[in-house]
Design a protein around this nucleic acid. Structure first.
Length: 436
RNA sequence: GGCCCCAUCGUUCAGCGGUUAGGACUCCAGGUUUUCAUCCUGGCAACACGGGUUCGAUUCCCGUUGGGGUCACCA
C-alpha cells in the first residue's frame, strides 16, 4: 500500500512554524517511504480564508521545498459531500438531531460516540486509550447547515485516501472522535502519529493567536528555506546519530516516525542563526552572489571605480549569518562616505604615533609596484618587523583609516581590493581629518 | 476541576538495566603570530522528587511535583 500523508492547514492568516513543522514531517515521511504528500486547504472559514492567505501558504511551502504530489483539495468545494455523509450517518443511526439552544436556531446534527472504551496505537506516542465515559457526542453539522471540522476533516482524509495522519498532539483528544467517525462511515482507519508541540520562549505552544513565529517572518529576516527546514526537522526528531546539518536526501533517508520524540521542544533562535551561517558558508560563490545582489545593489553599481564585487563577497561569505549583514559590511568598499566608528577612533587611532605610522605606511605603499594581496601583506609585515611597533600598533590605524571600522576581514585582502590609489587617498583623508 | 500527554546540561538531540551520562547551540579559556568572523583545542553545565522491581536503575512500574493539551454549533 502506498503511503499517503497530508498537510491540512486552514489558510487563516499566516502559518506558524508549529504547523509548518508538521508539514515537514509529513513530507519527510512520504518521501522516505516513497509515498505521496498531499495538501488540503481547509478553507471553510470564508471570513478568514482569503486568496492572499492561500497564496502566502503556498509560497511558504514552496520556499521550504515542500512539493505536493497532487492538486490541492479545497475543502470548501466539498460541502455537499460532507452534508450527504451526515445524512447517511443520520439514516444509519450514528447521528441524531437536536436543538441545543444557544445562539443558533433550530436543530444541529450530532454524532453519537460509541459505548465502548477506545484504544489506538499512535506511531509516536504508543498505546493511547480513552474510556467511553470520558467521551461525548459532538456536533457534526451546525444548525445553520454547515459541517463542523471533525466531519469535514475525516471525510476529506477519506477522499484523499490518506493513510497516515501526522499532526500536532493537540489533536489527540480529537482522534477518538475521528476514529469513531471512520468506523461509522465504514472507512478504513488510518494510522495516527501525534507530534509534540513546538513551544515558544515562554514555554507556550505556538498558536494562531501568537503574533510571531510566522514562516514568512523567518524568510524576511534572511533565513534560508533550507536552514529552517533542517532546523525544524531536528525539533522532535533526530537521525539517531550526531548528524545535525544534513542534506535533504540525508534527512529523507534517515526519517522515521518511530524516532520522533514525544516531548515538546523549544525554538532556539541562536542555534537557528548558527545553522543559517553554516548554510551560507556552504553556498557556492555564485549562489552567495545571487543572494547578496539585493543587499549590495544600492551602491555596488553606482560607483564607476568599484572594486571587484566577487572579491568582496568572497571575503564576506564566511563572516555572515544573515544576508542583511552584507550591506553594512560591504559598504565601505564602494563608498568613500563611510562613517568612522567613534569608539574605534578614540581607542585605536588617536594614539601616540598613529599618524606617523599611517604616513610611513602610505609612503611604503606609494613605492609598491603591484598591490596584490601577497605584496601588501608582505609590506605590512616587513614594516611591523622593521619598525618594531607590533601588529597592534600598525594594523588597527590602517584599518580604521580605510574602513572606519576597528574590525573586519583580513586587512591585506581588504587593501588589495580597494586598490593602491583608494587606500592612499583614504589614509591621507584620515590624517587630514583627525591628525591635525 | 475531569480526562489525556510529557519530564536528560540554559536550549536541542543521543542514551533504550551496568557509560568517566555523549554530540550540537550558547557561554568561558587558549591557539590559528592585527581585530571580528571562520577554523582548531580545552572547559563550565543535566538524569525533577519519592517509592518500588532488580545483584544493579537515567533507563522498567507506581505515586508526587511541575509543564502542556483537551473538555465549542473554532479549526
Amino acid at each position: 500500500m502506498t503511503i499517503r500523508t497530508r498537510f491540512a492547514p486552514s489558510p487563516t492568516g499566516n502559518v506558524h512554524i508549529g504547523n509548518m513543522r508538521a508539514a515537514i514531517f509529513n513530507w519527510l515521511y512520504a518521501r522516505h517511504t516513497g509515498g505521496q504528500f498531499l495538501l488540503r486547504v481547509e478553507d471553510t472559514d470564508r471570513e478568514r480564508s482569503t486568496p492572499e492567505a492561500i497564496e502566502t501558504l503556498l509560497q511558504a511551502m514552496d520556499w521550504l521545498g515542500l512539493d505536493v504530489d497532487e492538486e490541492p483539495l479545497y475543502q470548501s468545494t466539498r460541502m455537499d459531500a460532507h452534508l450527504a455523509a451526515a445524512e447517511q450517518l443520520l439514516a444509519d443511526g450514528h447521528a441524531y438531531k437536536e436543538d441545543k439552544g444557544g445562539i443558533g436556531q433550530g436543530e444541529c446534527i450530532i454524532f453519537r460516540m460509541p459505548e465502548e472504551d477506545m484504544v489506538f496505537e499512535d506511531e509516536i506516542k504508543g498505546t493511547l486509550t480513552k474510556k467511553a465515559a470520558d467521551t461525548q457526542d459532538f456536533v457534526i453539522v451546525r444548525s445553520n447547515g454547515t459541517p463542523v471540522f471533525h466531519l469535514a476533516n475525516v471525510l476529506d482524509d477519506i477522499e484523499q485516501r490518506v493513510t497516515h495522519v501526522i499532526r500536532g498532539d493537540d489533536h489527540i483528544e480529537n482522534t477518538y472522535r475521528h476514529i469513531a467517525l471512520y468506523k461509522a462511515l465504514g472507512a478504513p482507519v488510518p494510522k495516527f502519529a501525534h507530534l509534540p508541540m513546538i513551544i515558544n520562549a515562554q514555554g507556550k505552544p505556538y498558536s494562531k493567536r501568537d503574533g510571531d513565529a510566522f514562516v514568512g517572518d523567518f524568510k524576511e529576516k534572511g533565513f534560508l528555506g533550507e536552514t529552517l527546514f533542517n532546523y525544524l526537522a531536528l525539533l522532535g526528531w533526530s537521525p539517531g546519530d550526531d548528524r545535525e546539518v544534513m542534506t535533504r536526501d540525508e534527512m529523507i533517508a534517515a526519517f522515521e516516525l518511530t524516532s520522533c520524540k514525544s516531548s515538546p521542544a523549544q525554538v532556539d533562535l541562536r542555534k537557528l542563526l548558527w545553522m543559517n551561517g553554516e548554510y551560507i558558508r556552504a553556498m557556492k560563490p555564485e549562489e552567495f552572489a545571487e543572494m547578496a545582489k539585493a543587499e549590495v545593489s544600492a551602491f555596488a553599481k553606482a560607483t564607476a571605480d568599484k572594486p571587484n564585487l566577487d572579491a568582496v563577497l568572497a571575503l564576506l561569505q564566511p563572516r555572515i549569518k544573515l544576508p542583511s549583514e552584507i550591506g553594512p559590511a560591504a559598504a565601505f568598499f564602494f563608498s568613500d562616505d563611510y562613517e568612522y566608528d567613534e569608539k574605534a577612533v578614540q581607542k585605536k587611532l588617536l594614539k601616540e604615533g598613529s599618524f606617523q605610522t599611517l604616513e610611513k605606511i602610505a609612503e611604503i605603499f606609494q613605492g609598491l609596484e603591484t598591490f596584490d594581496e601577497a605584496t601588501v601583506d608582505k609590506a605590512l609585515h616587513d614594516f611591523v618587523e622593521e619598525s618594531g611597533l607590533g601588529f597592534g600598533a600598525v594594523m588597527p590605524p590602517v584599518r580604521i583609516a580605510v574602513s572606519g571600522q576597528q574590525s573586519g576581514p583580513d586587512l591585506a585582502p581588504v587593501l588589495s581590493i580597494l586598490g593602491k590609489e583608494k587606500v592612499l587617498e583614504r589614509i591621507q583623508k584620515t590624517i587630514d581629518r583627525f591628525g591635525a
